[in-house]
Nucleic acid binder design. Structure first.
Lengths: 344, 344
DNA sequence: GCCCGTCACTGAACCGGTAAAGTCTCTATT
DNA sequence: AATAGAGACTTTACCGGTTCAGTGACGGGC
């Protein structure tokens, strides 16, 4: 990209117009002491008349703040488009960033390695002042990298996954247990879970929690778990496999790791001639608007994803202003019963 | 955000290590002539050993390219999360940007005025090298602003809306006509359309096209149109209203402006005891994976949204490298019949 | 009436690059 | 042998801010 012929108004123009030095303008715009009220006003007036605001590029180079937050997302693009989660999450992040007039630098990457490289180059190139890290895996390299670089970062994920970084997380273990308890209370004893991508840390957490919760059931219950890639197609396939068993042998309730897969499950059940919730109960996760648009409506573990994003952004600002590492749990997803769950 | 204590390696370090001046390093990294093969190699080796790459901030300030593309989106955050369209579009844009190692600066704004302000400040602050403009309205101020600023921009929308800017667009008129012709061919004579936000230019285009297409039908047909905000709830409300009329008076086919609303329409029909497609046919727009996950599956006007985004990005690069204004139509959405449409 | 401290502001260096002009060396030309 | 020209670098002047050491003027204390 090439430069433009547009005449740009710079700090010098403002200084000249206000009859002061550039230094004074800088002081005024950074609300630093050492200027009289009158001069300050004159400077602001001049800036307003000229329509000037400081160049963040120059500001960054000169060594002060960088008001951009990085977010690299490592999931197949086509899937992202469908997951209501991400856009909602991003919009929550944005809602806080705008207040601080901070921008979000977004990049889709294809591998964790690429993400690490990107973070390094963003940080070294002073493109970002901090980063939000999502989708933690086992032995994730990012905490180490962030520390080595000194990159302020907030990790979205359970503290056990995020290697000592400040983390914001939902208590998936409790949520899974609640989901299972709810289904058990309805009388289900054959419960399946269609999980997300196996390599993701939060999937393992939920998997373990599910096994434990079902194992603790009294009288004993049977559990199934399948890993997918979060796509509707995978959810449909998993559901088909689970429901293919003869009536007495198949699950009577299925928990999904997102809502797209639950929607897919719903139509697979119909396609197989099973009624929801009479023959099989379905429980979605994350609860976007989608869950209220299906027939029957989908019961879900609902979750204020927008608020979650906002909390992540707030925590990142905390980190940037010197807060030490910490753990910030956000409210546990809560069960919202709708039309897709009932006694078996 | 404050600076970091990390020792940053700069062009000076690389120059010292390679035993040349900074200027030479700059020449090497910009593939400019005037360096011997040997020196060039030495410089690259030094850079590699030090793990250096040029700071885009400094580069930008020094007046060369800005490798960031801006995208401001003015829609309610909650809606965005649901619209598969945007994430898919963005991922298409990204797919082209990465090849040119260019980043996407994303911001959600609440009003067109805010967007204009943002573009100005991004551009003046040299935060972006160019911008993608979406969601055009009648008398949109952005073409004027972009021209005044000299901001390279690509408009997503029909040339009649985008005030002379380079535009990338789908032929909605033809697509709407095709949708109507298809339904008419099935035998429908009472056809409704649940449109998007009335203030958007492409909605008006589709509205006009729909009226015209239905008007041209032989024998004469009846048309209904409703404007919404693209949300599932609005789609459900609109569908409810349309289908509330007595059997002989209500539409036998409904076209939706996105797929979320079509999904909502599907369950409203069921809720009202109408069978799809026997009692009413439904036709979605944009065709995300969602359309294949419902029961019945949704017929849709499908559209390579990912490819659309990619084409937009490519066109923007063209503009940045000096291409004059132009009009770039992308393939017209094509009808994909599935289970939600049939003769009345 | 002198000295000191504070306040308000200026000037210059610097951030990490780019770009244009300048220097030096070596070869080809006349 | 003197000169021109090309090639390979180096030097230097920015880009648009921030920061910090000064500089003058003014007011207060003794």
């Amino acid at each position: 990209m090439t430069a433009t012929p547009t005449p740009r108004v710079t700090i010098k123009d403002v200084a000249a117009r206000a009859g002061v030095s550039k230094g004074a303008v800088s002081l005024a715009f950074n609300r630093k002491p050492g200027l009289s009220e009158a001069t300050r006003d004159r400077i602001f007036a001049a800036a307003r008349e000229l329509g000037w605001s400081p160049s963040t590029t120059a500001r960054t180079l000169a060594g002060s703040r960088v008001d951009v937050v990085g977010l690299a997302v490592c999931r197949p693009a086509r899937l992202l488009g469908l997951e209501p989660f991400y856009m909602e999450f991003i919009s929550g992040v944005e809602s806080v960033l705008v207040e601080r007039s901070c921008a979000l630098l977004l990049r889709l990457v294809r591998s964790p390695e690429e993400e690490v490289g990107l973070l390094e180059s963003w940080w070294r190139g002073r493109q970002i002042g901090g980063s939000i890290l999502v989708d933690f895996r086992a032995d994730d390299p990012r905490p180490t990298v962030a520390k080595r670089l000194g990159l302020p970062a907030v990790a979205v994920g359970h503290p056990s996954l995020t290697g000592g970084l400040t983390s914001v997380w939902t208590d998936d273990t409790t949520a899974v247990a609640e989901a299972v308890r709810y289904l058990a209370a309805l009388g289900h004893r054959r419960i399946a879970r269609v999980g997300g991508a196996a390599e993701l840390g939060h999937t393992s957490i939920r998997t373990a929690a599910f096994d434990e919760a079902v194992g603790a059931l009294e009288p004993a219950a049977r559990a199934w778990q399948v890993a997918t890639d979060f796509s509707g197609d995978a959810g449909a396939r998993a559901t088909r496999t689970l429901l293919a068993a003869p009536a007495g042998e198949r699950p009577t309730a299925i928990v999904y790791d997102n809502d797209i897969m639950a929607v897919a499950g719903l139509s697979v059940a119909a396609e197989m001639g099973l009624r929801v919730p009479e023959d099989v109960s379905l429980l979605a996760w994350d609860d976007s608007q989608l869950c209220r648009l299906t027939r029957p409506t989908l019961s879900a573990m609902s979750h204020d994803v927008h608020g979650f994003g906002a909390e992540v952004a707030r925590t990142l600002f905390g980190t940037l202003t010197g807060d030490g590492p910490g753990s910030h749990p956000v409210p546990t997803p809560v069960l919202t019963p709708r039309g897709s769950t009932a006694p078996p």
